[in-house]
């Protein structure tokens, strides 16, 4: 029981104090998970991160599940995950109830329209970063444009496009056009 409470509170803290999730969480994980609780070593965390990135779902949640699972099985995984998402749920519920009350006010509408533009900039910058990391040869370039046109021009659900991309990945790696890093 004690370990479950510790898992919950530790991951709650990490959910509360990291902005942006993913790699932003690493320093905090280092302090709490590795140094304070000795739940994992540095190498293990790196493994969990690498796997969390190429498996479905949110990286923070995936890492929390790993740590929790190795401490206390499936229950541990669930408790750690609940810990890391609890702060988001509370904060967003507060914001959501505020916004739905105020969103009709003209000045708030103007503010939100301005924010939309900032989000465009954030997205462009994020895409540029991802592009540099992910598109490194002709094969990945081909996959990018195939996926882009398929998602703009067809009504196919992203679910099918993800499956298609996975198949392309297998075929092109087998053919030697894509290399494992």
């Amino acid at each position: 029981m004690k370990i479950l409470i510790e898992l919950y509170t530790t991951w709650f803290k990490m959910g509360l104090f990291t902005f942006g999730g993913g790699y932003a969480m690493l320093p905090m994980i280092q302090r709490e998970v590795i140094e304070k609780h000795h739940w994992a070593t540095e190498d293990e965390i790196m493994d969990y991160y690498a796997i969390g990135q190429c498996t479905p779902g949110i990286i923070a949640v995936n890492t929390a599940t790993f740590i929790g699972f190795y401490q206390k099985g499936v229950i541990g995984g669930i408790v750690a995950t609940l810990g890391v998402i609890s702060p988001s749920i509370i904060i967003i519920l507060l914001i959501a109830s505020l916004i739905s009350n105020f969103s009709d006010i003209p000045i708030i509408q103007s503010a939100l329209k301005g924010i939309n533009v900032a989000v465009c900039v954030l997205m462009i910058n994020a895409i540029r970063n991802l592009w540099n990391k992910s598109i490194k040869n002709i094969a990945s370039f081909v996959i990018f444009f195939t996926a882009l046109f398929a998602s703009i021009l067809t009504d196919l659900s992203t679910v099918w496009l993800v499956i298609l991309a996975a198949v392309l990945g297998i075929v092109m790696t087998k053919a030697g056009w894509l290399k494992n890093e």
Partner: peptide, 27 residues
Amino acid sequence: VQAIFNGLKPAVVAFIASATISLFMSV
């Protein structure tokens, strides 16, 4: 697993770009 991920990485950038294009249109 690595082969699947090789295919997913560029595709995910494309999916995000596609949603971003819609956002640009509306803005």
